[in-house]
Each structure stands twice: as structure tokens, then as C-alpha cells.
Nucleic acid binder design. Structure first.
Length: 597
RNA sequence: GCGCCCGUAGCUCAGCUGGAUAGAGUACUGCCCUCCGAAGGCAGGGGUCAGAGGUUCGAAUCCUCUCGGGCGCGCCA
């Protein structure tokens, strides 16, 4: 609808060669916006104000000239020049009727753009370390990422969703040793459990189900050979110094246990334990997310970067381009040249590649796989990485703008007005599974994206669970269910409904609320585009809320099943259009649109 | 100390990349079911858009500084 008006404006400009120079670089569509005040019509263009300076003319005069040049069309009822030089367009009823017809014809496709082949987008999100179940913070990443993916697909972009599995490095060793120790414990060999190990109950579950073929039971003495057994025990954390010292001691202790595990099991044996452990957790995460309606196209293994030589490839590219240098026995990337605070090591003096090297290689690989635009959805605490990873891509010859990073702020849970403690240790309430079980998938998906991603999120469990108008997700679902119920009622009462007839009678919808509803419905494609371009699902949430509110207001005033046939059919068409748009919007949010509640 | 994000109604937040008189929800007050969903609707009060400058036809929005809050600054992952 907006494009229709934009076309008229650009046609008018094309007919005015005097303005061609001043108008160069201005797209008509960018000058148009929906009016806030209905007395200003449906769309307003500020083009005359923007042209005033380069054309050296009074904006109101210019506006009048442009209006005079507009082509004839039955889509526009009238145009006005208003205020400092706005051109206000009032669309004709037929334009809105045509849009309603489109909403019914296209059904689930309404608001979606045709598929295009580029740019190919790689959307990476969640990517939580596979060392335990997802917690409520990851839930926000999952809901946000999935919704952004849906929005981009609605815009026609090819989107691939990817989860980067951090399955390499020390954390995996600690996971492996944690499971091994729990397994030994189950076999009767108790060893003081490391404070820096993973202590959750799920570790015991994994240990109980592990295939330990060929893995010998070790005696406690052997495990602790040369190890200060109390090194990992918790000590009173009285001061920051003591805590720091204890932390160091715990890290040392668990590190020594890892070495003992490798010595006793052999590298292969330890690797089997480790791989089984991480696969168990990764599979659990995949199930959890699938239940949440969040599905990935690829699970990309960090280990595979090493196995396939991708890290060496990436470093070789950098070396060829003279983007690495040696200092103090290590190999560095000059990140400061790309806006980072300091240069970063990629290969340590002991020959081990850093995590940053993996990150560069991973993003290099994304581009090498043919993706044009990379979107990383990261926790707000990761913002420090952005400059250096982008720098890495630039250093390899890619455009740094091809990497887009969306940061997601933290989530705080509230119950009974009280902020909840969410530490793993307290065990109070922290996993995504628990949250989903308590408030349901629909409310969780909805609440997670209700606020801007760069805003801290207060998640109120009581409101999310409530089944009243306090709860926005029920409010929306209710509007959908109410319309479905109305349609069922019409059928039960033997009312012969004809939507085809209704479509020819839309001229009967003369009430201000009906016209406001039609106007609101016609905004949907613009809302999808806006939400997609800004990676801002909350825009869609607020729109749907407004739409549902306008519907409730209208329907409360006019229960229409017993209206004369033509009027009734027209109103049913309008109701069905509302239902379609709500269903489509909820679909993008990953929230169900119920037949009844 | 340096960097990133944030500051809008009592509370939780929108505000369409600069538009016309700053909006919702919630809370509070009072109304509306003999009826196709009251899980709904209607009406009311509530603001120095943290503060100060600047850019221009026009600023909550862009720039600078100040104040306040969050997060990050390893040859960890």
C-alpha cells in the first residue's frame, strides 16, 4: 500500500524535470510515513521540505507543484498540503477494500515477500557452551534469534540458522573429568570432587548412562597420585583475596585431575568420555530448543575447525596478507589497526592457538561457505569481541559491514514482586526447561521478545502465567479465539455466511472504528518490514496488541451476526482479515493462535 | 582509567532511523453483560522525554559535555 503511494510520488517527480537535480538520491518511499493523526490522511510525505533547500523554493509552494503533477488514480481520495509543507494523502475506500481482499486471498502468505536468492544470511544464535542445560538467559537468545529469523524469512531472504558448539578446549576437559569422577563414584571410587568441576545433577545422569567399554575403574590413590586432594575443596570465602586464591587453587586442582584422567584412561579413553558427555548435553539442548519451537539448520562444531584445518587456513590468509606478527614468542593480530583496544594473540608461545583464532577461523569459514551477511546474536557481555572479530574479517579482505552483531541484554526473573536469585548453585530456578514448564512455551516466546533486545528484561512469572487481560499474550490469543468462536457460532445458528458476498459489500463498513481497523490491517506488511530491518520483534508485538485492541473495541460495540446479510457478510470479512493478520503475526513470533481457550 | 549499552507517566516499557498536540500497559477512580467469548469494552487524572549546549524549517530521536545505572576490558573459553 505504501509502495503504491510512493510510486505516485516518484511519477510526479519524474514529470518535473526542474526538480530532478534536487531530488537525486531521495527515494520517494523514504519520504512517506503513516500519519499519527487521521485528520492528516493516511500517508504523509515530507519530500517538499527535503527538496526546499536544494531547489531553493518555499516548501509549501513545492508541495503544491508536486501535488499538481501527481498522476490520476482511484486509490487516492484527496491530497492536501499541510503544516510546514507536508503532502498528506488520503486513500480512497477502494484502496482499503482491495487490501482486505488481498488479506483474504493470500491468507498465511499475507505480509510475506517473494523469495529472493540473496543476500544469503547466516544467523548464529544461542551457541551456549555444551557444559549444562540452557538457562533462562539463553531462552531469550533462542526466542529472539528464532523470531528475527522468521522475520527475515518473511522478507524473502534465505536464512540459515546456526548453533556454534564450543566443544573444544579446557571447559570440555573439565566436563569430561567431572563425568568420569561421577562415574568412578558410582563404581565405588570416591574422590574429592573438584570445586571447579561441573556439580549439577545432570553430570551424574550422564555418568550413569555412559558407555564405559574399555575404561578401567581406577583406585582413588591412583587418581590422586601426586595431587593435593584438598586443593579443590571450598574454603570460607571471606575476602576477595581468599576467593581469588581459592579460585586459583580450584582451577589448579581440576587441571591436575584432567591430566591424571588422561594418564589413566589414555587420550583415547578420556576422549570417549568427553565426547559422550558433550554429545549428551548437546542433544539435550537440541531437544529443549525444539520443544521451544527453535530449530537450527546446522550445529557447527568448534572441534571441526581444527580437524578440517580451517584455523590454519585462516591464519595462512592473514599471514599472506601480512596481518600477523611475532612478539615474545607468540603470534599476534594487530587488532588495534581495526579499532580494538589492544592487539590480540592468535598463537600462544607454547604453540597453542587461542580462542580468538578459532573465532576468526569460524567467521572466515562462514564467508567461505557462501554466506553474504553474517548476523551474530550475542550476550551483552560479549560486546568486547565485536571489534576484533570484525577486524579479523577485514584483515582477510572482507567487508567488515558484512558482520552484524545484535547484543541481547540480561533477563531478571520476578515472582511475587521479588527478584529471583538465578545462580546455578542456589538451584532455585534457572533452566529454560523449568521456565517453559511454569509459564508455557507461548508466554515464554512472547515475553522474551516483548522488549527491545538492548533493554534489560524483567520477566514477571506471575503476569506471564495469569490468564487475564493483564497478560498481553492471552489478550492477543483471545482476540483470535474470539473470532474463531464467532465464526463457529454463525455456523451453529445456521447463518449462511458468504465471504465472497462480503467482499463486494465492503462499502457498507462506514463506521470510524471499521475504517480504523482497515487502516491498521493495511499496515501489517510495513510492520513486518520494519521489524525485520531493525531486528526488532517488539515492533510486531506492539502492533498486534494495537490491532487486537481495535478489534475488541469495535466488536464490543457491534455484535453483528444478526445484521442484514450484506452488512453482516462485510463485517465477517473484516473479522476474518483481523484473524488472518493476528495468526500470521503470532506465527512469526512462534506463538500459537488457538481456536478456543 | 578506557570502551559499549541504557536513562521517556507512580511502576514496566513503545516511540516507525528527524516530523505535526510525546503514546500503550499497569496501578488508581467510576461505569457497561436477559445478548454472537466480561479472558472484553468505555471514561478520567498522571510528563522539565536525566541535565546543559549544538546541528535545522522541525530533536525524545543526530552531535558534544555532565550526572546516574548496567556490562566488558587475559598468551581463559
Amino acid at each position: 500500500m505504501k509502495l503504491t503511494v510512493a510510486q505516485l510520488v516518484s511519477d510526479a517527480l519524474a514529470a518535473l524535470p526542474d526538480l530532478a537535480e534536487a531530488a537525486a538520491g531521495i527515494k520517494a518511499v523514504d519520504t512517506l510515513e503513516r500519519t499519527r493523526d487521521p485528520s492528516h490522511g493516511d500517508f504523509a510525505s515530507n519530500i517538499a521540505m527535503r527538496l526546499a533547500k536544494p531547489a531553493r523554493k518555499n516548501p509549501r509552494e513545492l508541495a503544491a507543484i508536486i501535488v499538481a503533477a501527481l498522476p490520476e488514480t482511484d486509490a487516492i481520495a484527496k491530497t492536501d498540503v499541510a503544516g510546514p509543507g507536508f503532502i498528506n494523502f488520503t486513500l480512497s475506500p477502494t484502496a482499503f477494500h482491495a487490501e482486505i481482499e488481498t488479506i483474504l486471498d493470500r491468507g498465511h502468505e499475507y505480509g510475506r515477500r517473494p523469495h529472493r536468492n540473496s543476500p544469503k544470511i547466516l544467523l548464529e544464535f544461542v551457541s551456549a557452551n555444551p557444559t549444562g542445560p540452557l538457562h533462562v538467559g539463553h531462552g531469550r537468545h533462542a526466542a529472539y534469534g528464532a523470531t528475527v529469523g522468521n522475520l527475515l524469512e518473511a522478507m524473502g531472504y534465505p536464512v540459515s540458522r546456526e548453533y556454534y558448539v564450543n566443544d573444544a578446549g579446557r571447559q570440555m576437559d573439565i566436563l569430561g573429568v567431572s563425568v568420569w569422577l561421577r562415574w568412578l563414584e558410582a563404581q565405588g571410587t570416591a574422590v574429592p570432587f573438584p570445586g571447579a568441576g561441573y556439580r549439577g545433577d545432570y553430570i551424574r545422569d550422564i555418568a550413569a548412562n555412559i558407555d564405559a567399554t574399555g575404561i578401567a575403574v581406577s583406585e582413588a590413590d591412583a587418581v590422586l597420585d601426586g595431587v593435593a586432594a584438598d586443593g579443590g575443596k571450598d574454603k570460607p570465602d571471606d575476602t576477595a583475596e581468599v576467593r581469588a586464591a581459592n579460585k586459583a587453587a580450584r582451577e589448579t586442582y581440576v587441571g591436575v585431575l584432567v591430566d591424571r584422567a588422561k594418564a589413566l584412561l589414555g587420550d583415547d579413553g578420556f576422549d570417549r568420555v568427553r565426547q559422550q558427555s558433550l554429545e549428551a548435553i548437546r542433544a539435550d539442548i537440541e531437544d529443549d530448543l525444539a520443544e521451544f519451537g527453535v530449530v537450527f539448520d546446522t550445529w557447527y562444531s568448534e572441534q571441526s575447525l581444527t580437524k578440517t584445518g580451517r584455523i590454519d587456513d585462516a591464519l595462512a590468509v592473514l599471514r599472506d596478507r601480512h596481518m600477523l606478527y611475532e612478539r615474545d614468542g607468540a603470534e599476534w593480530f594487530p587488532a588495534t589497526n581495526f579499532g580494538d583496544e589492544k592487539d590480540r594473540v592468535v598463537v600462544r608461545d607454547n604453540g597453542v592457538k587461542t580462542y580468538f583464532a578459532s573465532d576468526i577461523a569460524y567467521h572466515f569459514d562462514k564467508r567461505e561457505r557462501g554466506f553474504d551477511h553474517l548476523i551474530d546474536i550475542l550476550g551483552a557481555d560479549h560486546h568486547g569481541y565485536v571489534a576484533r572479530v570484525r577486524g579479523g574479517l577485514k584483515a582477510m579482505g572482507y567487508d567488515g559491514d558484512d558482520l552484524e552483531v545484535e547484543l541481547v541484554q540480561f533477563v531478571t526473573l520476578y515472582r511475587g514482586g521479588e527478584k529471583m536469585q538465578m545462580s546455578t548453585r542456589s538451584g532455585e530456578f534457572d533452566t529454560l526447561r523449568q521456565l517453559r514448564a511454569e509459564v508455557g512455551n507461548d508466554a515464554a516466546r512472547f515475553y522474551y521478545v516483548m522488549r527491545s533486545n538492548d533493554q534489560h528484561l524483567d520477566f514477571d512469572l506471575d503476569v506471564a502465567k495469569s490468564q487475564t487481560k493483564d497478560n498481553p499474550v492471552y489478550y492477543l490469543q483471545y482476540a483470535h479465539a474470539r473470532i474463531q468462536s464467532m465464526l463457529r457460532k454463525a455456523e451453529e445458528d445456521g447463518i449462511s455466511v458468504s465471504l465472497d458476498n462480503g467482499l463486494t459489500q465492503l462499502g457498507l463498513l462506514e463506521l470510524a472504528k471499521e475504517q480504523a481497523l482497515m487502516r491498521e490491517l493495511s499496515r501489517y506488511p510495513e510492520i513486518i518490514e520494519l521489524a525485520a530491518n531493525n531486528r526488532a520483534p517488539q515492533t510486531l508485538v506492539h502492533y498486534l496488541r494495537d490491532l487486537a485492541s481495535e478489534f475488541h473495541s469495535w466488536y464490543n460495540d457491534h455484535r453483528f451476526l444478526k445484521d442484514p446479510d450484506d452488512l453482516r457478510d462485510a463485517r465477517l470479512v473484516l473479522s476474518v482479515a483481523v484473524r488472518n493478520v493476528i495468526a500470521n503475526g503470532l506465527g512469526i513470533l512462534g506463538v500459537s493462535a488457538p481456536e478456543s481457550m
